[in-house]
Write a protein that binds this DNA or RNA. Sequence first.
DNA 1: TGAAATGTTGGGGCG
DNA 2: ACGCCCCAACATTTC
Length: 483
Amino acid sequence: MPAPSIVWFRRDLRLADHPALQAAVRRGGAVVPLFIWAPAEEKPWPPGAASRGWLQHSLAHLDRTLRRRGAALLVRQGRSAEVLRAVLRETGADAVFWNRLYEPAARRRDGRVAAALRRQGVTVETFNAGLLWEPDDILNGQGRPFQVFTPFWRQCEVRVPAPPLPAPKIILGVERVNVPATFGAECVNNPEATGTVTGSAPEEVASRWAAAWQPGEAGAQARLREFLAGSAADYPRRRDQPALPGTSRLSPQLHFGELSPRQVWHAVQAAAGGWRRAAGAFRRQLAWREFAHHLLWHFPHTPEQPLRAAYARFPWRRDASALRAWQRGQTGFPLVDAGMRELAQTGWMHNRVRMVVASFLVKDLLLPWTAGARWFWETLVDADLANNTLGWQWAAGCGADAAPYFRVFNPVLQGRKCDPAGDYVRRWVPELARLDARWIHRPWQAPAAALQCAGVVLGRTYPRPIVDHAAARLRALDAFYRM
DNA sequence: TGAAATGTTGGGGCG
DNA sequence: ACGCCCCAACATTTC
């Protein structure tokens, strides 16, 4: 009987399409599924408050599904290298398998850990389970990484990712070596981000959260099936309407690896008999995720520094009260405020609205994109360093394939286009709920009678706009033009 | 994955 | 019938 193998779970919290787990099971010995809570090793981007909440639930779910197949999840805190050494000793294991991560800090850490283990004679094997294609698989004609999405996408379109692996039926566990550490207090679902912003009671936040999300592999599979059976066929038309459930909402599951992109890709392919165009549009979004990871791999300084170096000197403003108004959804622009409140209350925001609020922070308020990235990092359940970095640098115009400097979203027009009836605003900004659709995206222009009959008192029940968008746009054009 | 400013066209009112 | 103007609708350019 071979010695036990450790499977080091990180952001692959599933059993299906899990090459590291598969390798351990195939070896024939016992399997030790291990999760190590070591946020300091991911500095300067340790998991934010919303991510920690999701992670806690997802780990509990993973433990339950592993137990059903024979092996409980061991959760430890401490430095990864030391924890691995200790668990190797305690279990008599002689091999460690894991699926690769692509963030700079995790890469460095994993490289050191692998080298140290191998020096001690431990077998280490790592796998790709998080991306359709790894960062060095897709390069341009000169062997360099793509920096523009469209040619990158053309390369993706002609490839078929590897088919997903099945989940192992039985996992041979080891005797419980000792009681697994309970997940640390610092990792408990932390409503700090939502609580301070909304003033809601923790129980209320928790119940709203539970209604919105079902972390874990089973919930992820259910969400995927629901999407494929429901709005997927109409994806191109519905995906830009934040009031509708038109998107897959699989971003947190993809971030934590409760589903792999290969599973999603192939499931879409198999389901899309009658809607090939929609399938292509959806695959394109998966490709944006790939693109983001490729960029982070090849340009690891970009979470902190603009890809276009000239932007390091951009004269961002410092304005704590404007930043706070944005964070709390009190800017006076209903679409922006609705998005920021959806984020605070559910840990998620519709992608179209993310672009609008990002443009508002960066262009209308001239506040640094890094401040927006940090807030999203703390509050999003799907906070993902690669996606977050690409998104914010795109909005600020300082990244790859970035929005040109003159592209400034108008929150009123975006509202009219994407939320014509105002339902999204009504849901998240209830103080405007009774306002006529005509004025819901620009209450400051509504006639006094319309405001009165909707019970809106500008400056009291809902803020006046904190900037004049037309003037702010000109200010931004001037500042960005100088770059 | 924008929006505003500017240019062009064509229908209709009107003298 | 005709030219003129107005202006909405659409296209193009510009930021």
